[in-house]
Design a protein around this nucleic acid. Sequence first.
RNA 1: GGCGCAUUCGUCUAGCGGCCCAGGACGCGUCCCUCUCAAGGACGAGAUCACGGGUUCGAAUCCCGUAUGCGCUACCA
Length: 491
Amino acid sequence: MTAPVRVRFAPSPTGRPQVGNIRTAMFDWLLARHTGGSFILRIEDTDVARTEPGALEAIMDGLRWLGLDWDEGPDVGGDYGPYFQSQRLELYKEAAERLVKQGDAYYCYCSPERLEVMRKEQVARKQPPGYDRRCRDLSPQERARKEAEGIVPVARFKVPLEGQTRFKDLIYGDVVFENSTIDDFVMLKSDGYPTYHLANVVDDHAMKISHVIRGEEWISSTPRHLLMYRALGYEPPRYVHTPMILGPDRAKLSKRHGDVSILEYCHQGYLPETMFNFLVLIGWSLDDKTEILTRQQLIESFSLERIGKTGAIFNKEKLDWMNGVYIRSLSLEDFVQRSLPFLEKGLPAAVKRPLDIDYIRRMMPLVQERAKTLVEVPQLVEFFFVDQPDYNTELLIDKKMTLESTIKTLEVSRQRLQLMEVFDEALLENLLRPLAEELGLKAGQLFGALRTAVTGRTATPPLFQTMAVLGKERCLKRINAALEKLHQLSS
RNA sequence: GGCGCAUUCGUCUAGCGGCCCAGGACGCGUCCCUCUCAAGGACGAGAUCACGGGUUCGAAUCCCGUAUGCGCUACCA
């Protein structure tokens, strides 16, 4: 696997870039980089009706986000362009005409309505549905008559009635199909656009693609492609079908079960390096223990041989874990920079902008090891910003404490805190630990009351560090507010 | 219905005839650490390797069959 490959990712711009497709693109990219080959982006915009505006940009954004740069493609050009199939219509038409001339294809004038009825009957008779080849042997006169009626035909490939078509898939091994089970499929639609089958064969040949990497769902149509390669006199590429990514019900992942756009993971605060690592591990593994791999390690160690055969369910919990691992591995400044957009968006509108970046830098070490995704960072640090945290007064009173003892505890704490000149972590600890003992409390009881008073929460980063970041003024203000709440409760 | 592909802990997987009465990871449980929450550490539960036949001295690994699941079966890709 050292010869440079030419591989292509060929999405159709009919929707957002889903993880299944992106994973295939990653395999393409990895193989290209591993072998020093080329990764080509080709847009299969042959389904005019389903093409969605914006889909192309979204696909490119998704690839860029993951760092899957392409060597040839719509925007960067290349020697084998154009890279939009809609701009290569002439090529497909020529190929189709040639096949018709050679007797390997024919024009079909059957109406969609007739085909519909035909299929229904076939299914009713428990026959395999498929084109009945009515137009396969039309006489020139019959054809002329249809043309005269103004019917615009489609071009169908003349699949051999007998024999077998076989190929060796690099992952699944030998696959054999009886030609008799394949119907005469449409190559060229009546609107002049090719179907996937034709366009794919013509372009992969024209673009000198060496390996076709695509989802397992394409295995069944591979013999059609092979038959066309043969009829056209082209050398077929190597085929690499990859296992699918499944939904929780083991069915092909769809929008229904959250096959969300790869960009959605970006918005949800997953790091691109997490997605890259995680996605490649669905269906591929290095060995029996390595889970975290850098992009460079992946390029070096990637190989087709280690791609599995079985569809895999997308394991969200594991993704979350891995994202935590990657977040923790970030340098503080990197973590700050990546969190910034999420803070801008996620912090309450009442927090004044621009955000105080230095203040943020001081609190971020406290949340870095607690965040699983970037999108939850604002939640984690919100109490640092709000004027006065909102919380239920009961939370101030520890299970083993009373209203009175809590009031007393906070009052004494306030006095002592007020006397501090330098409000840092070490000094806070030196003050507070002995204070708990002095008050006859367990450290947790004192710290718990202070924690709630100062943050409004029962689960926060370590108290002293948190208070140090908050600063003396904010802490005292909040303790005062807490005491007020408690007094209200007692009256 | 036809054709094709697949089948190892709940999930992702290692395993390509003896090292496996099956290893790792996520998740889960217990414990340690500890001011809470995380993180980290230790330990544990969890798979008769879908089932049934072969082949072999020996099979999760090879062969056949069955079952189940999934995919394809469009003038979609």
